[in-house]
Design a protein around this nucleic acid. Structure first.
Length: 576
RNA sequence: CGGGGCGUAGCGCAGCCUGGUAGCGCGCCUGCCUUGGGCGCAGGAAGCCGUCGGUUCAAAUCCGGCCGCCCCGACCA
């Protein structure tokens, strides 16, 4: 591609409303332009990367036995009413009416459409499993779109859905997709990590997110330094083996005055006892019903775990008035001893290990000391706390958890029967009996992957594309070609030669000064830059520089095409 | 949806408090000059000051409504 014939407007300065680096660089590099909040035009340069990512997706998914189709973006409300999500989904679902006043939405996801399709087409176990995917524009009316393509409203997504005859088959499919995802992100040239994820409102037990590792990532991850355990903090656990202490050490409970001290730090300082010795009681509302939850004083409740345990749609902290009415004591002084009978009491595993602990006394300005779980109260124990870096790995002996940040670019999800049951999508098994399909769903944010690639691969000057998803392999920079005809001729010849060989070349024939050209080359992040100028040509030399290296290689002009092709091949093989 | 902020030339911003001729840098156009890391000089085009209304002799500036956008929070495959 000749730059002078292309549509690639770059800019030296950053629009003020961009916060994250991928957004800034994509604007400066002429990759995207905003049309409305969270809605962007993908400019030609960006579209090339979108196509490259899409093609890697197709190759790997097809290899794994999935089949591409394309469903409508606009969906009728009836389907969503069948699954129950028309009322559940909330304002994030963009709804509208057609001219006949019928309700429709712009699809944020396609479980309903695909389930209806498979329901009407597949009757027999003989035709299972099927695994279908599409690459399509989605719309989610995000509460707060931000960070450019990282959290847009309109975005391109690969979404896939599998249908199996039984759970065992669905598991096979699930892990096949998991492996395909590993290959996909590896082939994109990204540093990533699959992590265990919360299954959210869908329930079920099996879900993994594929996280591109980047400091700017919105998701906090924990992984074991010794084994392959890795999870989103929402899901992550620490080892839960706190043993109940020996009752021989139990001291009698006492009530002490703690005037005005409702916070752990205050009471801890006042009583000279460390927060680990505290039993913190929180009152939460699970779909409106109060429950009491105990965590150790130095721990945090993980609301996602609580929500999952209770099977609730929403969990929130009770306000002070609710605490008072549910527990009978002011917030800050509630405790597990002598609770109102009907209040359910849950506790994190770590609470079991507290010996002679401190907790609220269920009356204002008083705490109890020498409180011992088991002797002084009974609770339902579960994993309810936030895991932390430095915590012990739940999976291996001796491993310690480390913290990272990531950008969620893919998600594989075991759905089970949720949609097939709700929508009566059934097949006949070998015994002639009707069964609901066992489903899985698998998403990859294509445009988000592009943004994540930039978040992970950039420097002060611009993007540094991994070769497999770079919009071009090479950028050709003839120095002063209008004056120096030899440079111009050599560049044109090399351009022709490389293009013939199938190399994707951006030929910067704009006649810009060297400084501007190099600055743009760095900004655009094309992996290989070839500079052709009088300085080298007098010795028959051109300079070939990788974007991620500081020094160029000086290569005879005659060999330039071959050297460039070798470099590209090397890079691509690394990610094959 | 709660809190905060911003809308002035394509982009980044000043001007607003204290009402009276709309300005700077970048970019763009012309010419000369220069040419290996965003050259220099000279000339030029370009703005219904988001929008509607109010106050005033006079509004970018003061007041109110609306719209849009951004940031923080809650939410989210």
């Amino acid at each position: 591609m000749r730059y002078s014939q292309y549509f690639l407007p770059t800019s030296a300065d950053t629009p003020s409303d961009a916060v994250v680096i991928s957004h800034k660089l994509m604007l400066r590099a002429g990759m995207i332009r905003k049309l409305a909040a969270g809605i962007y035009t993908y400019m030609p340069f960006a579209l090339r990367t979108i196509h490259k990512i899409s093609n890697i997706l197709r190759e790997e998914l097809n290899r794994a036995g999935a089949i591409e189709l394309l469903m409508p973006a606009v969906q009728p409300a009836e389907l969503w009413q069948e699954s129950g999500r028309w009322s559940q989904y909330g304002p994030e679902l963009l709804r509208f009416k057609d001219r006949k006043d019928g309700d429709f939405c712009f699809g944020p996801t396609h479980e309903e459409v695909i389930t209806a399709l498979v329901r009407s087409e597949i009757r027999s176990y003989r035709n299972l499993p099927v695994n279908l995917y599409q690459i399509q524009t989605k719309f989610r009316d995000e509460i707060r779109p931000r960070f450019g393509l990282m959290r847009g409203r309109e975005f391109i997504m690969k979404d896939g859905y599998s249908f199996d005859a039984d759970e065992a088959g669905a598991m096979v499919t699930y892990w096949k997709m998991y492996e395909a995802y590993r290959r996909i992100f590896h082939r994109c040239g990204l540093k990533f990590r699959p992590v265990e994820a919360d299954t959210g409102n869908i329930g079920g037990s099996l879900s993994h997110e594929f996280q591109v590792l980047a400091e700017s990532g919105e998701d906090a991850l924990l992984n074991c330094g010794s084994c392959d355990y890795a999870a989103n903090v929402e899901k992550a656990s620490e080892r839960n083996d706190a043993a109940a202490p020996d009752p021989a050490g139990f001291l009698p409970v006492e009530t002490v005055d703690t005037p005005g001290m409702g916070r752990i730090e205050e009471v801890s300082a006042f009583l000279q006892r460390p927060p680990e010795q505290f039993i913190k009681m929180l009152v939460c509302l699970a779909d409106g019903t109060p429950v009491a939850v105990l965590v150790r004083g130095d721990h945090e409740l993980n609301p996602v775990k609580l929500k999952g345990l209770l099977g609730a749609d929403a969990v929130e902290m009770a306000d002070d008035a609710m605490v008072l009415s549910a527990a009978g004591a002011p917030a800050g002084f509630v405790g597990p001893i002598g609770l109102k009978g009907n209040l359910r009491l849950l506790a994190d595993h770590a609470v079991r290990g507290v010996l002679n602990g401190v907790c609220g006394a269920n009356q204002a300005d008083k705490h109890r000391i020498h409180v011992n779980p088991g002797r002084d109260f009974q609770a339902e124990y579960a994993d309810l706390r936030m895991a932390r870096a430095g915590g012990r790995c739940p999976k291996c002996e001796g491993g310690v958890l480390e913290a990272h940040r990531g950008i969620e670019v893919g998600h594989v999800f075991y759905l089970g029967l949720k949609y097939s049951r709700a929508m009566k999508a059934q097949f006949l098994d070998a015994a002639g009996k009707e069964n609901p399909f066992v489903m899985g769903c698998y998403g990859i944010g294509v445009t988000r992957t592009m943004a994540a690639a930039i978040e992970q691969n950039h420097d002060a000057h611009g993007v540094i594309w991994p070769m497999p998803i770079a919009p071009f392999h090479v950028i050709l920079c003839p120095i002063n070609p209008k004056k120096d005809e030899e440079a111009g001729r050599a560049a044109d010849a090399l351009y022709g030669e490389l293009t013939q060989a199938g190399v994707e070349v951006l030929h910067d024939d704009r006649g810009e000064r060297a400084g501007s050209m190099f600055a743009d080359a760095d900004l655009l992040g094309v992996p290989i830059r070839v500079a052709i100028g009088a300085r080298g040509l007098k010795d028959g030399i051109v300079e070939i520089k990788r974007r991620n290296e500081a020094e160029p290689a000086r290569v005879p002009l005659k060999e330039a095409a071959r050297v460039v092709q070798d470099m590209i091949r090397q890079d691509l093989e690394k990610y094959a």
